[in-house]
Nucleic acid binder design. Sequence first.
RNA 1: GGGCGCGUAGCUCAAACGGAUAGAGCAUCGGAUUUCUAAUCCGACGGUUGCAGGUUCGAUUCCUGCCGCGCCUACCA
Length: 657
Amino acid sequence: MYGHLQRQLAERVRQFIARAHNLELAHIVIEQPPQVELGEYALPLAFELAKKLRKPPRSIAEEIVGGIGKIDGFEGLEVAGAGYINARLNRAELAQAVLSDRQPRAGVVARKTLVEHSSINPNKAAHVGHLRNAILGDTFVRLLRLTGRQVDVQNYIDNTGVQVADVVVGFLYLEKKSRLDIEQLSKQARFDYYCWDLYARVSEWYEADQSHREARIEVLRAIEAGQNETANIAELISLAVLRRHLETMDRLHIEYDFLPRESEILHLNFWDAAFRKLTAAGVLVYQSEGKNQGCWVMRRAGLDSRADRREIREEDQKVIVRSNGTVGYVGKDIAYHLWKFGLLGRDFGYRKFYLYANQHQCWISSTQGEPDHPHFGSVQEIYNVIDARQAEAQNTVIEALRELGYKQQADHYTHFSYEMVALTPRCAAELGYELSAEDKMRSHIEVSGRKGFGVKADDLIDRLIASARKEVDSRHPQLTLDERASIANQIAVGALRYFMLKYTKPSVIAFDFKEALSFEGETGPYAQYAVVRATNIFRKAGLDAEHFGAEVRHNIASSEFSQYLAAGAGNEIWELWLASAKTTYVVEQAIASTEPAYVAKHAFQLAQLFNNFYHCHHILSEPDEARKRFLLVTVAVVRRELIRVLSAMGISVPPVM
RNA sequence: GGGCGCGUAGCUCAAACGGAUAGAGCAUCGGAUUUCUAAUCCGACGGUUGCAGGUUCGAUUCCUGCCGCGCCUACCA
């Protein structure tokens, strides 16, 4: 509703300026005044026009305010300060719209959208960095779906790469395990932890003697070729670890629709099809001499593309096909993205892989699929949640699409880039790692799967649950074991998801258990607690929080809203209604800027306003029945919006806390 | 060397296209509960927004140059 009114205001002002001054303004800046007393919207427009019209800002502002006339939903405009135009909403009207949950929406483009996230190498346990990726991605999916978009969620599985090969080397060369041994091991509860340690050991083994690396090359070759014992073992391991990853993410209510694997991109010859297109269009260039002799290369992204492609300077070359004929991962990624947009002319085979408790089916790619399956891919718009370190590789894929002539697709390809999660030196020390004097001085230290250095996702979730459980046990000893476990679980998920969402994407998260395990202040549990308090009021009053608003909607006169929300004494409660009206607007902003942190901030703001309100008003003891009903309606609306925003972040609210 | 990003309170972070007095949380200190649960609320303390210029009526935000930090810059993924 808030965004809708803002658009209307902008349109009216635009029309007025066009009429009065014959000026077409492309975009009109609208912001929020520092305090609600000044109104709900502020336009600094007059400052901008002052030079153009050769008039002082104040007089321009006065002219606009005087001439624009009545705008639906608004009380009026006024001039403030040196020339701001502030707009006041009709509070009663907006409150009634919010109460009945009216959501006028600007035409939503019904593009089919694909979000790729997680994409964890299936060779070891997931760690905190993967959690940030998955939580950002899953939340973005929820936001897109909230606005009515149709979204496919994909998790790309690199099951034929070096990382999987290294763990295979570990099992075969270090541990001398047979296929049957590995199969037995893979059935243990946290097989991914076993692989985590083994992977670190393999790295040490490589360090000990360079010749050990030959094992990797041999295993890698066998995996890529397929149809042999080593490849079968790699398949066994990667599927077992993948299943563990899905279980870990399932604990956070993160689900996937489809798991495309690199093995199928290889074996279904996706690359051949892509290669033909790329060479035909001259995007790939063969190097017959120089450093990259014998390779097919592409121009690195981000460079001046006017220069002749055929003569790319050596340092600007990105090798796509190696001189031995094998394809690097960027090449496979180009093929995969041609498929995403339905431009490859080939498709995966599909089979069922993982069934969620809610009966949602997750599919996996296969050379020979099941006859009956949904079709993934062929979308109009994609978002790839991939950390900032891969920006250049992502841009290279985008450039390849563009140079192939797929401009539309390239324009709808968004690298949803975010910074990594690192560990504070204190956290690293806590985990038992020895730090150099230099490392101790750093603000953060990068995690490294190769070294086994990092916080495992399941460990963190376990600790959060244990910590929440301790609190719940002491507060609600009368509840059953299951009830307490379930509440602790919701709180843990709320804390973790909020923690990963509250930072803006370009900020490196310096992970620390103390911060992550906090349930106070700007945290998920803080927002959950606000909802619990709201629910308690209704429970004590013997009312149904879900339906209260709808039930009394027609019994509250407009004059009552005007009275209780009047400027002055009503400002404080009005802020709650105004914030409640902003949810859709905030979601739109978050999508447009691919920044879920806006949504987290909004949730916190709502909770903070509510907690303050809760403290100031004793609703159930309110003697004035009409006023009591109004306060209850206020609680119902804020509660509804908080639940909605939290749910968009994948956070549910416990019945009690 | 080149590319991308960052530098804001003791710490961790905000600040919508350049706007009104740069805001939160944590930490520290002081207060609030006969009440709908204190995982809460209120107050205090805390800032030359890395430095120097420039553009502008107005700069944390845009431009230039420095300083510091991180990441990328492999025939790894």
